[in-house]
Amino acid sequence: MIKFLNPSYVFKISGKLLNLFKTILIPLVIIGLVFSLFLSPEDYIQGDSVRIMYIHVPAAWISLFSFAAISFFCILNFLFKLKNVTLIYKSLAPIGLTFNIVAVVTGSLWGQPTWGTWWAWDARLTSMLVLMFFYIAFIFSYKFVSNPDRSIKACTLISVLGLINIVIIKYSVEWWSTLHQPASISLTNETTVHFSMLIPLGLMVFALFMYVAVIFLMKYRIETIRIKKKGIKNYEL
């Protein structure tokens, strides 16, 4: 257990993992894009704009998943003062924010031809926008609050509120009437996406999660190097 918390050990392992992920990332993205842009059929009613879904859905999932993850690590840090996990959430938060923006923008591009509007203030869309502000607040509170104790407190508060928002996002389409359609893929109900569209979606989810892993590991290693460099500088002085 101690071994896994040792930054040098993690640094070594993460380098190996990064190389592995990098090699499978490119073929995975190519296969995913070929399936979703060329091999998959059009939708019976939306036509080609269904292809936006293959980016939109993974991006939305990633933004929800990574907020849950950063909240978890932030709360862990708050409870047990594990300094090393700050690196994890610092490396993951910007990726989550990026995919949140991707989800909102692609959703908007899909909304215009399908619904007839770029934006609607319904519960799902609004709660996704709120998540974006939570991400920004989270990033600000570790970047611009110099006192680490205060920074953790601020992050924890945002995490708790943000996690409630995650639940709201998930159930918004069931609790209230929204313009956004209910979930097509769920663990309890039957999936309402046809098999021929489910394959490219699955591939894109896999490819984009791999991309997140690669960017995360790269960022994690950079943060580690930054800390080490700081240590060396202090030592020299």
């Binding site: 059009e42 019976y44 399908t114 309402t192």
Partner: peptide
Amino acid sequence: KRILAKHDENYMPPEVEE
């Protein structure tokens, strides 16, 4: 004053719909 179309959660190719 304004009409929006609501899409449902079903996605399928035209042949399947037919």
